[in-house]
Design a protein around this nucleic acid. Structure first.
Length: 793
RNA sequence: GGGCAAGUAGCUCAGUUGGUUAGAGCAUUCGGCUUACAUCCGAAAGGUCACAGGUUCGAGUCCUGUCUUGCCCACCA
């Protein structure tokens, strides 16, 4: 279900900037024309995000693409408003809200994040009415608001001010009489212990004002210039007024001092202007009743967060939830379905628009000028997006919501509340909170910071599959990712590997070898050890990929199939297959493992797998089933047998590298091992010979080490490689001695453990048995190593 | 002020319920055009798991404290 919201404030800002180039303000165009311009902009750029999603290979129902301002969706928004209003959960009220003087709109608390500022704490003397030589000194960071002061508050326990309680002060500059009141909210330790109270310009003071029935004096206009209540300071910008007021106070000797002071102030999340706490009439949603069942849903586990730690963050916010300010003084968005009678001021909420006032019958009605917070439409996304009741029934509730941490309050919490309130059912069961993408220096990538990596550029340079696979691989559950261009090489290289391996296999395949079915019996196709092994490994990889996906461990899933495909299938099986590439059983396995791997890889890398798939089948891979784990194909014994061969091959390669044996030279190998091991190696000597370029391989339990040969010990097996050139005995001694040292220290470690009676008593049996077995194996290896060393000496 | 996350190889990061020898990619060193792939192949080197205590037979993993970094929340005028 793809779609976009209308991003009210952000979009309006962009278009305002655009028309500003022609010297126009939105007011110059008027509401209707301006909104038209925004629609034009939306048509032109709004599809970018959808286009990017498509380029990334996102598999959505594109014909269901929805926009929050679509007709039907807008209907749901208005409908929900009315339902909440009728239920008494929406009200209009005076309140100190976050006001952005630049955007000229109210903002919710979540839209006005606090940032630290370096400011000053100014100490100002307010003279007593009865005796102008006596003062109360208050401390403030925003002296310009003093023009709106209607009281000074002190803590009732504060002895310094006890005798002044109830007395009257003369507010300097405006000469208004204000009372000294007592309230326990005041922190005696801060500043002077006396606080100026400005109920119209500060949320705390507002509360005090309500409680103590103070006067509310608003001294600013919406553009944060001082208004007629500010006397001589009228028309000055708030910060300009601050400077002038300080000058004037200084002149009157009422400014005691100014201390540097760090304070934190709300900033508009869109334009970063400092918020002005401002008294105005706004619309609110009562959140407590909506939050209650939404808290329950999470507490009872009907909705789960991944990773779990976000549960606490969610609950903490929900349990302290404040009413939601939903009106915005902008034009781009859903208008409130609210109508005022100009005659009797009756308020009517109506979906169609009333013809006349239901109270007085006047036809002189006007719709509220405001629009709704964008989130007031987005919170309906899980259900308002469906045009068809049947679809809604079928798809709702959805299984998982995947989103960013920063949006838990804005969106996730509210969707849960809306779902329960309007659908009587939670909107989704799992909430997966992914990490934040940051740049090299740890800064969050964002368009406004300009530090983004454009996915389209990466796709051009590395490919969409490379981009996807790289990011998935480095994203552990909910961990932030630090992204740089270089990281995309990882996915690109893997895509290259898949491409080449597929090319190799497909170019060798004969059609008749692809048809056979893999049935439960290994023998049906004369399978070799390697055939059985790679199938066993594939199904184990598949099992682990499935498990990882079920737990939202996408990186583990990606790396699981990566590890299998590259380092088991390509590095070992395909290499081994070259010797018998025309054998039907080899071709069958190559084909089966490839096509199954492609199906597993498809969700991670849709483009390359689709392309390769077309060489195998005329159909699309998108609708192919996910492979089933065939448990009977998983065989640990086969794994072990193959591992023994891999170990011998690795040991010989090691010798070749250590002794700088000419890569082209064919060598002879002798292996001395217990009977059954020797037999096993002998039966599969072809593998060894092929992968280490050996001329001849002799195995047995009575092999005699030839003089001048290098040796490697694998468990109970001794591998000898006779060297043509004169062997450097000292070097060989060094090699063996080092191995002895390593083996010894490991044996000692295990020995310590096995000597510990507590360990033997308390550790689980299988752990103890494992240790014993391992010690015995290592002891045998050590014995062989020492014998060989002695032999040299 | 409260909370969360992170500190593991030169770099970037994995490491699920405590269990044998802590992994990967990149970078490094050595050797390779071995007829799918040099965006590759083979081999190697590289870690007192931030620090200090504790629990445990056993700790990268659990507990406590400390340090460093980042983020979130909060009405210190």
């Amino acid at each position: 279900m793809p779609g976009t919201d209308h991003a009210g404030i952000a979009t309006q800002n962009v278009v305002e900037k655009q028309i500003a180039k022609d010297g126009l303000r939105r007011q110059d165009l008027g509401r209707e024309k301006f909104v038209e311009r925004v629609w034009q902009w939306k048509e032109q750029y709004g599809s970018t995000i959808i286009m990017q999603l498509k380029k990334l290979g996102s598999s959505c129902d594109w014909d269901r693409t929805r926009f929050t301002m679509d007709e039907g969706y807008s209907g749901s928004v208005a409908d929900v408003f009315k339902r909440l209003y009728d239920k008494g959960l929406i009200y209009r009220g005076d309140y100190i809200i976050n006001w952005c003087p630049r955007c000229q709109t109210a903002l919710s608390d979540e839209e006005a994040p606090h940032h630290e500022l370096q400011g000053h704490l100014y100490y100002i003397k307010y003279p007593l009415k009865e005796d102008a030589n006596q003062f109360v000194t208050v401390a403030t960071t925003r002296p310009e608001t003093m023009l709106g002061d209607t009281a000074v508050a002190v803590n009732p326990k504060d002895k310094r001010y006890k005798k002044l309680l109830g007395k009257t002060l003369i507010l300097p500059l405006v000469e208004r009489e204000i009372k000294i009141i007592a309230d326990s909210m005041v922190d005696m330790a801060f500043g002077t212990g006396a606080v100026k109270v400005t109920p119209a310009h500060d949320p705390n003071d507002y509360a005090l004002g309500k409680k103590h029935k103070l006067e509310f004096v608003n001294v600013m206009r919406p553009d944060a210039r001082m208004n007629e209540n500010a006397g001589d300071y009228r028309d000055m910008d708030r910060f300009e007024a601050r400077e002038v007021i300080l000058e004037d106070l200084k002149e009157k000797k009422l400014l005691v001092k100014e201390d540097p002071h760090n304070l934190s102030a709300g900033h508009c999340y869109r334009c970063h202007t400092i918020i002005e706490p401002y008294l105005s009439k706004q619309w609110f949603v009562k959140m407590k009743p909506l939050a209650k069942p939404a808290i329950e849903a999470v507490k009872k586990g009907r909705i789960k967060f991944y990773p779990d730690r976000w549960t606490k963050v969610y609950l903490n916010w929900m349990e302290n939830i404040q009413d939601w300010c939903i009106s915005r003084q902008i034009w781009w968005g859903h208008r409130l379905p609210v109508y005022y009678c100009k005659k009797c001021e009756e308020v009517t909420v109506s979906l169609t628009g009333p013809e006349k006032c239901p109270a007085c019958g006047s036809v002189d009605m006007a719709q509220d000028e405001d629009v709704l917070d964008t989130w007031f439409s987005s919170w309906l996304w899980p259900f308002a997006t469906f045009k068809d009741e049947k679809d809604l029934k079928y798809f709702y509730p959805t299984s998982a919501l995947v989103t960013a941490q920063e949006i838990i309050f804005f969106w996730v919490a509210r969707m849960i509340m809306a779902g329960i309130e309007f659908q009587k059912e939670i909107p989704f069961r799992d909430v997966y909170i992914h990490g934040t993408v940051r740049d090299d220096t740890g800064k969050k990538m964002s368009k406004s910071l300009g530090n983004i990596i454009d996915p389209l550029e990466i796709i051009k340079e590395f490919g969409a599959d490379a981009l996807r696979f790289s990011i998935i691989s480095i994203t552990a559950v909910g961990q932030d990712v630090f992204l740089s261009k270089q990281k995309f090489e990882f996915g690109r290289n893997f895509a290259n590997k898949i491409w080449n391996a597929s090319r190799f296999i497909i170019s060798n395949l004969k059609a008749e070898n692809m048809k056979a079915d893999l049935c439960a019996s290994y023998d049906a196709h004369n399978m070799s050890l390697a055939d059985k092994w790679i199938l066993s490994r594939f199904y184990q990889a598949l099992e682990s990929v499935e498990k990882s996906l079920e737990n939202y461990r996408f990186n583990e899933a990606a790396l699981g199939i990566y590890e299998f495909f590259w380092h088991e299938f390509c590095d070992w099986y395909i290499e081994l297959s070259k010797a018998e590439i025309n054998e039907p059983h080899t071709q069958l396995i190559l084909y089966k493992v490839l096509e199954k791997s492609l199906r597993v890889l498809h969700p991670f890398m849709p483009f390359i797998t689709e392309e390769i798939w077309h060489s195998l089948s005329p159909e699309t891979i998108m609708t192919q089933p996910w492979p089933h784990v065939q448990k009977q194909m998983i065989n640990k014994k086969i794994d072990g047998q193959m591992q023994a061969i891999i170990d011998v091959i690795t040991a010989v390669r090691n010798i070749r590298a250590a002794w700088n044996i000419d890569p082209k030279a064919r060598i002879n190998i002798l292996v001395k091992a217990p009977k059954d091991t020797a037999q096993h190696l002998n039966a599969n000597s072809g593998y060894i010979k092929a992968l280490v370029k050996a001329q001849d391989l002799k195995t047995g339990d009575n092999i005699v080490k030839p003089p001048r040969s290098a040796v490697a010990i694998v468990k109970d097996t001794q591998v000898y490689v006779p060297l043509e050139a004169l062997i450097d005995l000292e070097k060989e001694k060094g090699r063996i001695s080092k191995k002895i040292e390593e083996t010894n220290s490991t044996i000692n470690g295990i020995g310590q453990r096995l000597k510990n009676k507590e360990f033997l008593k308390k550790a689980p049996k299988d752990i103890v048995e494992g240790e014993k077995k391992r010690k015995a194996e290592l002891a045998e290896t050590l014995r062989l190593l020492e014998a060989n060393l002695k032999d040299i000496a």
